[in-house]
Design a protein around this nucleic acid. Structure first.
Lengths: 343, 343
DNA sequence: TTGTATGCGTTATCAA
DNA sequence: TTGATAACGCATACAA
């Protein structure tokens, strides 16, 4: 825990520089001395001090992940992204530091950004979903003051590095599928409408309906908050407003679960009376009754891509700025019984 | 991003030492110079370099969290713990580094342990559940080679700092509640039986039954793997084996969901024909049909306690070793309709 | 191939 | 109250 290169050097009867060379492999050391050094390190239980190394290398090999604090980690989506990030980061030799932002205040955002750059992280992964206006700070930023940043889950922006899922396409797939099943009156339970992703999914719903010449009236739209309870009440509202309702697209699986609950409570059978599709393809969805059709997002992949992009950016930053890149990932529809017309 | 104390010092017309004093507040600096320094920092956009600071202070103010890699983050339990950890850590001025262990191999464990100590983390939170034998490495460890470690979710051990939930008590509460509802034949779907927590919950089930003089036959025990699917098949098995079954205790909510699924498929009503209790009290449970009775673990609290303990240990380590402490948290039963005899 | 000297950005000690 | 100097642990340029 506290033995140094010097200690190892003394033990092996060489100089500190040689030990360093043996460690990094940047310059050749003789086979014999190399072995002596390795032995010495082993005996002394040497661990390199990454802070010292980072100090001289001007490179911490740390990636900072910024996430919205709280139960967010419990969302299937976030954890998938984190897993993807971790895998690729590990593969590329980065360690991961976790930062949490609680509220929407720019003050707090800059505080964590400062913390990030105080740690001299090599790069930042911004895993906070875009909500109306919560990206404005990006404009005010002094780019050279902070390490390169890649944004996940936000509206593509040519000025920024962004990795996103094509939410509109995903919703479109879901709704088109319902139309193919013969549905004519398809309601939607959205996420909070100040979220970019909610808006995009709503747009996909609308788009699919209009393409098919179907009703996309606002009476078919109910705003939820991602939680199951809002799926319950959303379904209530929809059923009350539109007795002719024959399908519902819930903007995530949790709300779909709530919708299922309400349908059941009201004596409605799914898929006999009503078809239902969710979004996220959480593992539990396959065990709902009936098993839930849902949209798989490819979040794990998005995490990996984000790290790759960031890595390139870090490496090339030494020479010159790389142009930001936009990565849009296509989702996939997983069809289960909740949307299968049983006829 | 790259202005230093020296730069600030020059700009403010003082020495580097004085800037440092102004920064840390350890020694007084005159009001006037203090202001000048603050101004200079502002103008130059100064950010302290935590690597350099850590190097001289021999203190990184970083806590390492070790978690089992993969979808584990998606489990409600893990994310709750992480949230608790983060809150307290932030409050105490620590940053958080995340490390993942994939398999059970000791080789991998020591690799991450080495990485942790290479970063010179001040302490470690071991958030990997105890599985048969995966704690053996603790015995082989050279304690002075690594920072202090607090273990979560493991069998209390007087030689280690441990923060755990009283799993046996939790299961006992769940099953006792079922007995009070008049159930006589109560099955259990366990987690993987090489997990300590699964064993403890099984013991709680058995204990409660025996106390009441009820059947705790092995025909009432089915082993699951925490996933919903195993809850489905587990319930099948139980129903096939014991036609007299009148209640089931599932060792987590996911498996309870699977059990619900099977009951439904077989035309059984819950709670009319069968009572059901889960474990974890995931938010979704309240939206299952029927809403699921479950055991709340207090995981958020356990994360906070773990950090507090670790913090004390870190602070006091400078003087002398503190004796390890065991923290056992009592769970709580949340009663919903799935266990309410409707009569 | 290896040793020596120097610097990375801070803080701490000792004088002033 | 402040300034100069050394030290933290490592890597590198240069010399040997």
């Amino acid at each position: 825990m506290k033995t140094t290169v010097q200690d190892v050097a003394r033990r092996a009867g060489v100089s500190a520089g040689t030990v360093s060379n043996a460690l990094t492999g940047k310059r050749h050391v003789a086979e014999a001395t190399h072995r002596r050094i390795l032995d010495a390190m082993e005996e002394l239980g040497y661990q390199p001090n990454l802070m010292a190394r980072g100090l001289v290398n001007q490179r911490s090999h740390v990636l900072s992940i910024v996430i919205k604090e709280f139960s967010d980690l419990g969302y299937y989506g976030y954890s998938s992204v984190l897993t993807g990030i971790q895998r690729k980061a590990n593969q590329l030799g980065y360690s991961i530091m976790l930062h949490f932002v609680d509220g929407p205040s720019e003050e707090e955002i800059f505080a964590t950004l400062n913390q990030v750059s105080a740690h001299r992280a090599d790069g930042v992964l911004w895993v906070i979903h875009e909500i109306e206006g919560n990206r404005n700070w990006v404009r005010d930023i002094h780019p050279e003051k902070y390490p390169p940043i890649v944004f996940l889950h936000m509206h593509p922006d040519p000025a920024l590095s962004v990795v996103s899922i094509d939410n509109q396409a995903g919703a479109n797939m879901a709704v088109s599928h319902l139309i193919e099943q013969g549905c004519r009156t398809i309601g939607i339970i959205t996420g909070p409408l100040d979220w970019w992703e909610s808006q995009a999914r709503l747009a996909g719903w609308k788009n699919a309906l209009q393409q098919a010449g179907l009703d996309a009236d606002s009476s078919l739209v109910v705003e939820g908050d991602w939680l199951a309870d809002s799926g319950k009440t959303g379904m209530e509202t929809l059923l009350d407003r539109r007795p002719d309702l024959d399908a519902v697209f819930a903007s995530n699986d949790r709300m779909a679960l709530g919708a299922l609950h309400t349908a059941r409570r009201r004596g409605l059978s799914i898929p006999e009376d009503l078809l239902l599709v969710g979004y996220d393809n959480t593992p539990e969805g396959a065990s709902y009754w009936p098993p839930l059709t849902s949209v798989r997002q490819g979040l794990l992949q998005s995490g990996q891509i984000a790290v790759e992009d960031l890595h390139q950016r870090i490496e090339s930053e030494i020479n010159e700025q790389t142009a930001p890149r936009q990565h849009i990932i296509q989702p996939e529809l997983i069809i289960r019984q909740s949307s299968m017309r049983s006829r």
